[in-house]
């Protein structure tokens, strides 16, 4: 399911312009990271995908749907959205009920709900915690519950707002596996992240925002090379890219294994 965003402008009621004409196309199956400084408009942009915000002008299309003509509930069939703060989206008494809520609300049949919930608990490694109250879990695990509750909705597009914040190394690896699994099943994954290393190692395309505009958009390889443009929106190059540059490598690398390969060949 393709996403088309054309000339999107969004102004808050007080007149503050949060998006100043964003045009982006995201084809089915894309693996896209959105980066940029705090307040650049990243969350504002993705909130247009599921109708939480409506364009002041311009167009947002999800497949053949224009978001202006669809309710948030309808858009939930196509876009799964994991909030930055899991506490904004959790309300059930147990982890399992929480994960069942989405697919139930979408009116899926019981068998399908069962299968989806099982798969979501499996991917997020929440099986043992299924009967606990989400608010008895640590914030890091609550984020997993939020993730599971969206995975179970089986939407063709999954949006994650800051999936790695407050997560330790083990959970960041788990999130990488989830991203790869979604990608493997043909879904579109869009993540907002400040973790440029996570982004470089797990995504294919990077969109860089600054002050309500897209300033860079392309394959990771090309975008991470633009040190000055990234710095202008408070983003650093990946650690491996910086290391390679200090050592005078002529090629751009951003993954530990690629670094070792280039070092070995030189």
């Amino acid at each position: 399911m393709n996403i088309e965003i054309k000339e999107l402008v969004f102004a808050y009621p007080n007149g503050v312009l949060a998006l100043e004409g964003v045009t982006v196309g995201i084809p089915t199956g894309s693996l896209v990271a959105i980066v940029g400084q705090n307040g650049a408009g990243k969350t504002t942009l993705v909130k247009h995908l599921n109708g939480l915000l409506r364009p002041t002008s311009g167009l947002v299309q999800i497949g053949d749907w224009d978001t202006r003509q669809r309710s948030v509930a309808e858009l939930a069939n196509r876009i799964g959205f994991i909030f930055q703060n899991p506490d904004d989206q959790l309300f059930c008494r147990t982890v399992k009920e929480e994960v069942q809520f989405g697919p139930r609300s979408l009116g899926f049949e019981n068998d399908r709900i069962e299968t989806l919930v099982e798969a979501a608990l499996e991917l997020t490694e929440l099986h043992e915690k299924a009967s606990q109250n989400p608010y008895d879990l640590s914030p890091a695990w609550r984020k997993m519950v939020a993730l599971a509750s969206i995975l179970a909705m089986d939407t063709p597009i999954v949006v994650m707002d800051e999936p790695t914040t407050g997560q330790d190394a083990v959970s960041i690896e788990r999130i990488s596996r989830i991203v790869q699994s979604l990608h493997g099943s043909g879904k579109t994954v869009i993540a907002i992240t400040h973790d440029i290393d996570f982004c470089a190692e797990n995504f294919e395309r990077m969109i860089v925002m600054r002050q309500g505009m897209v300033v860079l958009d392309g394959p990771i390889q090309e975008v991470v090379a633009e040190r000055e443009m990234l710095a202008s929106t408070y983003v650093e190059q990946p650690q491996i890219t910086r290391l390679a540059k200090r050592l005078g490598f002529s090629t751009i690398v951003y993954k530990p294994d690629d670094f070792i390969r280039v070092l070995h060949d030189s």
């Binding site: 083990v170 290393d197 990946p238 530990p256 670094f259 070792i260 070092l263 070995h264």
Partner: peptide
């Protein structure tokens, strides 16, 4: 890492390099 504590990419890449004799 056995305790689930992250290490920076700098430490990670040096460990891999050590294994490769680099």
């Amino acid at each position: 890492p056995e305790h689930g504590i992250g290490i920076s990419r700098y430490t990670q890449v040096a460990r891999k390099a050590l294994q490769a004799g680099l």
